[in-house]
Simulated assay, not measured.
Amino acid sequence: MSRVTARRKTLRISPTGTVQRPDTLAVEEPLEIRTGGASLAVTMRTPGADIDLVHGFLFAEGVIDTAEDIVTARYCAGTDENGQNTYNLLDIRLRTPVPVQPRNFLTNSACGLCGKTALDEVRTRIRYPLPAATPLVDVATLSKLPGELRSRQQVFDATGGLHAAGLFTADGTALAVREDVGRHNAVDKVIGWALRESLLPAHDLVLMVSGRASFELVQKAVMAGIPVLGAVSAPSSLAVDLATDTGLTLIGFLRGETMNVYSATDRVRI
C-alpha cells in the first residue's frame, strides 16, 4: 500500500536564517473506482482505508444500501515509474449492477445548481429520517470533541496537512477516526466503516470534523442517519439550510467551551 506521507526538499526561512532540509508531507493520490471494469469515479485522497472510503462514498450517493451490496472490492494492476503497484485502482463488484454512465453524483451535482435544487435532490434520496430531539449531547461533551479528534490525528502530527472526521457516542467515546487530504473523503471513510460495522443508521452518534462544514458534509451525515454534526470552523449557508430542512443539529466554531448551534438546538443540553 502507498505510504500516507512523503519527504520533499524545502528551503526553510526564519528570522535566524535559511536552511535546506526535507519536509514531511501528506500524500495525495488519485483513487479510481471501477465497477465491472468501467470507471465510475475518481477522487483525490490520502491512501489508506480505501475500502471504507468506497463503501461510504457509494452509500452517500445511493448506489448501495448495505455493505453486502458490494460483493468484492479488489485493487487492480497499476504501477508507478519503478514498477511498484500504486494501489490507486479499486474495482468493485456490486450485487446489483448499476449503469456507469451517466452517473449524477450528488457530491458533484451542487456545482451549477441553485440551492433549492440541491436541497430537493438530497430530500428525495434520504433513507433514514432523523429522530426528533435525540440524542441529547451535553455542552461539556461537545467541547471535548475537537481535542479528542485532534489527539487521534497521527498523520497530521507528522505533516500538518490532513483533515479528520470522527464518529463519537453521545457521551464522547470515540468509535472511529479517519484522516485524509479531503474533508469529504475523511467523512466517507468513517461512514464506510460504520456501514461495514452495521451501525447505520447512526441515530445515536455524533460526527465531528476538522475545518468547516460544507453542504456535502451535511448531506453525507443526513444520508447516514447521523443527527449531530460538529465542525471546528464555520458552516456554509447552504449547509445550514440543509441541516434546518432535515432536522440535523449543526454546530460550528466548536472550539473549547464556545460554539454556535445553527439548527435543531434541542439536542444540545446546556
Rank of each mutant, 00 (worst) to 15 (best):
T117W: 00
A118Y: 03
A118N: 11
E121K: 12
V122Q: 03
V122G: 03
V122S: 03
R123N: 11
T124K: 14
R125T: 01
R125C: 02
I126C: 06
R127Y: 06
Y128D: 03
P129T: 02
L130S: 01
P131L: 07
A132C: 12
A133V: 14
A133Y: 11
A133L: 15
T134R: 14
V137T: 04
D138Q: 14
A140K: 14
T141C: 13
L142G: 01
S143C: 12
K144L: 13
L145G: 05
L145I: 14
P146Q: 05
L149A: 02
L149E: 05
R150Q: 13
S151D: 08
S151Q: 07
R152V: 01
R152H: 07
Q153H: 08
Q154C: 13
Q154G: 13
V155N: 02
F156H: 09
D157G: 14
T159K: 05
T159S: 00
G161D: 02
G161V: 05
G161N: 00
G161H: 04
H163L: 05
A165M: 08
A165Q: 02
F168N: 05
A170I: 12
D171Q: 09
A176Q: 12
A176P: 03
R178C: 06
E179K: 03
E179V: 06
E179H: 09
D180G: 10
V187H: 00
D188W: 12
K189M: 11
V190Y: 03
V190E: 03
I191R: 00
G192A: 09
W193M: 10
A194C: 13
R196N: 05
E197C: 10
E197M: 07
S198V: 15
L199N: 04
P201Y: 07
P201M: 09
A202H: 04
H203S: 01
L205E: 05
V206W: 02
V206S: 00
